[in-house]
């Protein structure tokens, strides 16, 4: 099912930081993992991932290093910094509060 793009836009930082929680990844790996975990619901335009990664790196939430991937090609791997881990837990908290509230409204609960 395709969903409204604006719903993804506000959550991309949370999604990217979450993907790096389990360890370092390069861009294509992240996109593949995002497709797999979301069962292709979050199929964002792949080119837009890189501005996001670079802005997160500039903020100091992630760091990058060049390494040889399993394919034998050199790739830029990203990993979470301590600051990034703190931001992730904040974002997760925000998301849980938000989704709980939306769910409550949609389902008509008190």
């Amino acid at each position: 099912m395709k969903i409204d793009k604006s719903l993804i836009t506000g959550s991309t930082t949370l999604l990217v930081l979450s993907l790096l929680k389990d360890g370092e990844k390069y861009g294509y790996e992240m996109i593949s993992e995002l497709d797999r975990r979301s069962e292709n619901v979050f199929s964002l335009k792949e080119g837009t991932l890189y501005p996001l990664l670079h802005s997160l790196e500039k903020e100091g939430l992630i760091v990058s290093s060049l390494k040889v991937a399993e394919s034998g090609r050199e790739r830029k791997y990203y990993s979470l910094t301590k600051k990034g881990a703190v931001r992730l837990s904040e974002k997760v908290g925000e998301w849980q509060t938000f989704s709980h509230a939306v769910d409550a409204v949609v389902r008509g609960r008190a």
Partner: peptide, 11 residues
């Protein structure tokens, strides 16, 4: 360029 091209190469 290396990063973007690498991504497209994998795809």
């Amino acid at each position: 360029y290396d990063e973007l091209y690498g991504h497209m190469e994998d795809r």
